[in-house]
Design a protein around this nucleic acid. Structure first.
Length: 829
DNA sequence: TAACGTTCTTTTTTT
DNA sequence: AAGAACGTTA
């Protein structure tokens, strides 16, 4: 992370050791760079590209593939710092981002595919698959949608079309999966939608089926670099080899010990057999670790040594041993969390560390909850970098569905999601007829909606539904018109939000989390505004140097306005939680071990070091899977620079049940002399009498009070805790210190609307906000203004009867409802 | 049609 | 523990 400091001032070679220097300079021909954890491979990759540009290589001819968008942004930034120019034309991105860039231009080379497609996220995939199961009359309970999706994903990662997959299907299940795959794919096609795996697979298809396209990109990319090569799957492997086969200037970087994505099709043999693919390849090894203390590195080496199928190598460091690694046993999971908080506070106090120096890593997202509760109670600021993604929340998905349907009116998944949200009186029965007709007559949804007058009788739709659908169709058309006009995304979103009645319906929803949802919507609007701010940049990028001809494009009708919307939707689909990782933010970082890959922290806690948790119970029996768990442990351990804490609990609550737990086998793979067990004993002693007293101290004394870092906000005085840094919340950077709230249910409590992609904070302290049911004997009069928990504000049109029995007719935003007072929970305003 | 209550499933890991 | 899925009720 120190590259910035060195930029430009020194010649490149001064920052590099001999092996690194060689890797930077050997720009011609294939290169395999085996880079151990913390060996500075990111720096090498960056310098290598900078060096090439410095040597006069046109950035336009360089393609660099990174593992995350975050890494891509960083690399681009550092290259800019090193060479002083922006490296215009340089392609840096993840596989998915790079392939999207190709497909946006080239997809129409594939028969039937259209530009203006949308990307299905996992929830969409699931919805689509279930509709397939329904059509094929397959019982979800016998064949779980998720396992079928996994099979399909695997097939795509191996570049198998439904037909090819069918041919190789050996057993009954595979045959069934093949049928499902075929229909699923047909549905995607009809919706003009791609799933994640399609993005790679279709790119390969274009390159394979269109020699002129392949030729173009082969010629263009004289130099190709791929990071984390051990995590590439077959489709990605083929893609890279197709592109690199002309110039053969392919540099791949990786570490077989850090291969942890086998479960999503990654194939370590890609890196292990690179020399077979490129016999003339130079192989360089980076074995000096610059990150971790001697003890931490020794622990990592000791653990990974237990794996059989690996290339022998030994990382070394010039650093001192440093502190011993601490293994701590907690009584249960809440005590585990308490221990972590206490250690954070202790180290911060004793060593002058910042919150931002700590990371807590776990195997599964579910483990974050207990930790969060504890951190909130202690008032320690933290941020969760995985788990429920921001845009997976219901209200965000709804809003996105509107935008997606505006962008692509063939997207039946989005249509199905929003057509009756807020309620428009279009019921399931009507929708079924609609979909059946659309599929049966092969009429697109758009055409169907446009010609309802003619087709409604054929579909046997109710008059009420027809009218509602007509209204919906013309509303969508007005949205599309606005989008085409080139309005800003923010404006479009505002328009959609209000015209659709969605905002109103949320605002009226006083129940439970309506407020939080509105805040999320607010956050979403910030994101659109932020994207608007980058509009020019994006549109330039969009058809940069490619034969894109947006003006005459029929599929993306509306040109730039729609293109902008498409770009935004793409970003939403492909940007991961971890991409918002902000190193500088002074909060404790929570994330899965997988997400932590590529990152480093001064102090790391690995929690849940128990058999069944880590290694996961699903991967314990199969040796190959167990080795991947062990590699994950290696990755996790090597994230730590100075201090490492390995924590396990004797009891843990899972599925609401308390189970006893056995320490992870990985702990016993560490030689005793590398571990500090004394802290455990120390803690053990103080536990009975001291533990609660201790938390008391942290909780209520002013001892840690005014650290001054936060401009005087009282950190630990009583329970009141502010947000770090005054919680600036402009734009996507709005990451108000999730978890900094103490949870009294105070008004400005901010339940996790912590910005792009962060997990929602706990709703601790939100109790007691329940809306009471309508008071008995309440009487309604025509003209009364009322609020309904889900319909929002409305006006009473008529009322029959009194008290509980009263049947009240209310006009809500765009709809009329007949409600029984006793059940409706109406509130007079 | 929608709200509400009961029962069931869920926890790998992510682009 | 929390959410989804189903059935019941008005």
């Amino acid at each position: 992370m120190s590259i910035d400091r060195h930029q430009l001032a020194v010649p490149l070679s001064a920052d590099l050791n001999p092996a690194q220097g060689e890797a930077v300079k050997l720009t011609e021909g294939p290169l395999l760079l085996l880079a151990g954890a913390g060996s500075g491979k990111t720096r090498v990759l960056t310098y290598r590209v900078a060096h090439m540009i410095g040597q006069g290589v046109d950035p336009w001819s360089i393609l660099a593939i990174t593992f995350t968008n975050k890494a891509a942004a960083e690399m681009r930034e550092r290259i800019t710092g090193l060479v002083g120019t922006e490296g215009k034309g340089l392609w840096v991105g993840t596989f998915h981002a790079v392939c999207m860039r190709v497909l946006r231009v080239e997809i129409e080379n594939l028969p039937g595919y259209k530009r203006g497609f949308v990307i299905c996220d996992s929830a969409d995939q699931l919805a689509l698959l279930r509709s397939v199961l329904g059509e094929l009359d397959i019982d979800e309970k016998k064949f779980s949608p998720r396992s079928l999706l996994e099979v399909i994903s695997n097939a795509k990662n191996r570049l198998l079309s439904p037909e090819a997959f069918e041919r190789e299907a050996g057993d009954f299940f595979a045959e069934l999966a093949a049928r499902v795959y075929r229909v699923y794919q047909a549905k995607l096609f009809a919706n003009n939608a791609l799933d994640f795996d399609d993005i790679i697979m279709l790119t390969v298809r274009v390159l394979r089926e269109c020699p002129q396209v392949l030729g173009f990109y082969q010629n263009r990319f004289r130099y190709i670099l791929v990071d984390e090569y051990q995590d590439t799957n077959h489709a990605q492997y083929v893609l890279i080899n197709l592109l690199a086969s002309r110039h053969r200037n392919l540099c791949v970087v990786g570490d077989d010990d850090q291969s942890v994505y086998g479960w999503r099709g990654a194939d370590v043999t890609n890196i292990l057999e690179f020399e077979r693919d490129y016999p003339e390849a130079v192989v360089l090894k980076l074995e000096q670790n610059y990150r971790s203390s001697g003890s931490i590195l020794a622990v990592a080496n000791a653990i990974v040594k237990h794996n059989r199928g690996r290339k022998e190598k030994s990382l070394w460091t010039e650093k001192d041993d440093g502190d011993l690694v601490v293994v701590h046993r907690a009584v249960n999971d809440t005590e585990e969390a308490r221990y972590v908080v206490d250690q954070v506070l202790r180290l911060r106090d004793n060593l002058g560390l910042n919150y931002g120096d700590f990371a807590v890593l776990y195997r599964t997202n579910a483990q974050s909850r207990v930790l969060e509760e504890r951190f909130i109670r202690a008032g320690v600021p933290y941020r969760v970098y995985s788990g429920v993604k921001f845009y997976e929340r219901m209200e965000i998905k709804d809003l996105l569905a509107y935008l997606r349907f505006v962008f692509n009116p063939n997207d039946s998944v989005s249509f199905g999601r929003i057509v009756n949200v807020p309620r428009r009186g279009i019921g399931d029965a009507s929708l079924q007829k609609l979909f059946a007709f659309s599929a049966g007559e092969n009429v697109s949804l758009l055409e169907l909606l446009a010609s309802l007058d003619r087709l409604a009788p054929e579909m046997d739709l109710q008059g009420r539904a027809v009218n509602a659908l007509k209204g919906f169709a013309s509303m969508i058309e007005s949205f599309r018109e606005l989008a085409r006009s080139g309005t800003s995304l923010w404006e479009l979103t505002q328009f959609v939000l209000h015209e659709s009645g969605y905002w109103e319906s949320l605002r009226g929803n006083r129940a439970a989390d309506g407020e939080a949802r509105l805040e999320n919507i607010d956050e979403f609007l910030n994101l659109t505004a932020e994207f608007d701010g980058r509009a020019t940049e994006f549109l330039e990028d969009y058809d940069l140097g490619l034969a894109a001809d947006t003006d005459t494009d029929a599929a993306v009708d509306g040109g730039q306005g729609m293109a902008l919307l498409g770009g935004f939707l793409e970003q939403v689909a492909l940007v991961a939680d971890i991409d918002s990782y902000d190193d500088g933010e002074d909060v404790v970082k929570f994330m899965t071990m997988h997400s932590a890959k590529g990152l480093e922290f001064p102090v790391v806690f690995l929690v849940g070091m128990e058999e069944g948790i880590f290694p996961s119970s699903r991967n314990i029996l199969e040796p190959v899977l167990l080795e991947e768990e062990r590699r994950l442990c290696y990755v996790a351990v090597t994230r730590a620079r100075e201090r490492l804490f390995l924590v396990h609990a004797r009891q843990r609550t899972r599925f609401g049940r308390t189970e006893s737990a056995v320490p992870s086998r990985f702990l016993s793979e560490i030689p005793d002399d590398l571990v500090n067990a004394s802290e455990e004993a120390d803690w053990g002693r103080s536990y009975g009498a001291g533990a609660y007293g201790r938390s008391e101290r942290y909780g209520s004394s002013g001892r840690y009070g005014s650290s001054g870092r936060y401009g005087g906000s009282e950190r630990y005085g009583g329970d009141s805790v502010g947000n770090p840094g005054g919680a600036s919340r402009s734009g996507a950077g709005a990451r108000a210190g999730a978890g900094a709230d103490s949870g009294w249910g105070q008004k400005d409590h901010e339940p996790g609307r912590s910005g792009w992609g962060t997990q929602k904070n706990l709703d601790a302290g939100r109790a007691g906000q329940e809306t009471p049911a309508a008071p008995v004997e309440e009487t309604y009069f025509v003209g009364d203004k009322v609020i309904h928990p889900s319909f929002g504000q409305g006006i009473v049109m008529s009322c029959r009867g009194v008290g509980d029995e009263a049947e009240v007719t209310v006009v809500f935003a765009g709809e009329v409802k007949k409600l029984i007072a006793a059940y409706a929970r109406l509130e007079k305003t």
